[in-house]
Design a protein around this nucleic acid. Structure first.
Length: 227
DNA sequence: CGGAAGATCCACT
DNA sequence: GTGGATCTTCCGA
């Protein structure tokens, strides 16, 4: 039999060229995509519902602010399409997709996802004994990594195939994308207010309730070019 | 070399 | 809504 069995269209990875665009563009375009981690024969899949863009040197909230370069954030300077994983608060990991060209220092933080496959395994990873509620498994950057079993060993890997990649999935329509200020970056001054947090409007798996706005408004019209 | 802060999460009041 | 956990990393002295 001819080996034509390589087709895995359902989990076809996004190409590196997808990531070699501005972080705020990639952050929007990642919503609805599938984040896949394969480990020890088990496949865990999340549909991304919340992201944040970090713009590099000009962005005070970014680990690459002012061109800061240390052993810890070295992979943040890889070409777009690589993973940047870091350890924070003494107990959590956060996963980013690096964007732009080599040395740009820009990335997208993957903040929340909705279980698509392997929810039972994610529940075990997260330590839940009872039925989790929406957001319990991957409704936050630390939770997302714990649910998928992502740690520092994946720092710097290419996100275009096993063990960790992002697949085409079901991209969110631009009209259903909400934008707002990023979370946990108050120290960044004015940059903290830039509308670089994106989510699928109304999705129950986001990390936090969306900032109060006019009822029914998704602030989808907020332009990232306005600052 | 020491101190302080951190792209978080959870339990508790 | 508030505070504690927990420890690596970084910067200033």
């Amino acid at each position: 039999m001819i080996s034509c069995s390589r087709a895995v269209p359902r989990f076809r990875p996004l190409p590196p060229s997808f990531y070699r665009r501005p972080a705020e563009v990639v952050a929007r375009d990642l919503l609805g995509r599938w984040l896949v981690h394969e480990d020890a024969g088990e496949r865990l899949v999340l549909r991304l519902v919340e992201t944040e863009a970090y713009l590099g040197a000009p962005d005070r909230a970014s680990h690459a602010w002012g061109g800061r370069r240390t052993p810890r954030n070295e992979s943040l300077y890889l070409p777009g399409g690589h993973a940047y994983v870091y350890f924070i608060y003494g107990m959590h990991f956060c996963l980013n997709a690096v964007t732009g060209t080599r040395d740009a220092g820009s990335a997208v933080l993957l903040r929340a996802g909705e279980p698509v496959e392997g929810a039972e395994r994610m529940r075990v990873h997260r330590g839940w004994t009872r039925a989790p509620r929406p957001g319990d498994l991957a409704g936050g950057p630390g939770k997302l990594c714990q649910a998928l079993g992502v740690g520092r060993e994946l720092d710097g890997v290419l996100l275009s195939g096993p063990p960790l990649w992002i697949a085409r999935g079901e991209p969110a329509a631009p009209a259903e994308i909400a934008a707002g200020p990023r979370i946990g970056v108050a120290y960044a001054g004015e940059a903290a207010l830039w509308p670089l947090r994106f989510a699928v409007a109304g999705n129950r798996h986001v990390s936090r309730p969306w900032p109060a706005g006019p009822p029914g408004s998704s602030s989808a019209k907020l332009s990232v070019n306005d600052f």
